[in-house]
């Protein structure tokens, strides 16, 4: 059973298997915890499954499953207006859904931190993931979001910690792209 800090029976299903389980995911969660993140808005991705499960289980975090990623952009701004720190977890395909809502971040000077698991770039089986994957960095930068990319597990937690400082300390919009090679291949069998 997935431990829940909120939500009803719909959340009480088995934890989806990570495509690769690794210590860096725990360290990334610790970086978010250390940055004082209290709202974790997410559209599920297997690469974020550890963070999502941890957020649901954490007594001082609120995990917020979204129906679409732009909800999380607005949710993070609402959290900031209320003095809380929020993060948005999504995969690269979701970045495209956020474009116009990112206007909110720019116009308000709000801090914004998103962790994006990349699909469509490394041993991808599904061609439908590729176009948005290729556009992810361009789209984020076009909307004023700084992009920091992680390819190696040993860099993950430090990059997230630095991105959190940039976001919450300097009120910047920052996306950390977690590469598909880092996340691991999705098993299609």
């Amino acid at each position: 059973m997935l431990p829940t800090s909120q939500g009803g029976p719909a959340l009480d299903h088995a934890v989806p298997a990570d495509t690769a389980s690794a210590a860096w995911k725990d360290e990334v969660f610790a970086a978010l915890e250390g940055a004082g993140v209290s709202q974790v808005h997410y559209v599920p991705d297997a690469g974020h499954a550890t963070l999502i499960a941890r957020a649901h289980a954490h007594p001082k975090m609120r995990a917020v499953p979204l129906t679409t990623e732009e909800e999380g952009v607005a949710g993070c701004v609402g959290a900031w207006l209320g003095g809380a720190r929020a993060v948005l977890l999504m995969q690269s395909s979701g970045v495209g859904n956020c474009i116009n809502m990112l206007s909110l971040i720019r116009n308000c000077g709000a801090p914004f931190l998103t962790l994006v698991t990349m699909r469509g770039e490394w041993a991808e089986f599904n061609p439908w993931q590729v176009p948005m994957s290729r556009a992810t960095e361009t789209v984020l930068e076009a909307m004023g979001v700084a992009v920091q990319r992680v390819d190696r597990a040993e860099d993950a937690a430090e990059t997230v910690d630095a991105a959190a400082s940039l976001a919450y300390g300097a009120s910047q919009a920052v996306a950390v792209l977690l590469s598909q090679r880092l996340i691991g291949r999705k098993v299609w069998k």
Partner: peptide, 9 residues
């Protein structure tokens, strides 16, 4: 959703 983030905060 801004209202939700705010209400939770």
């Amino acid at each position: 959703m801004i209202g939700l983030g705010l209400a939770l905060a």
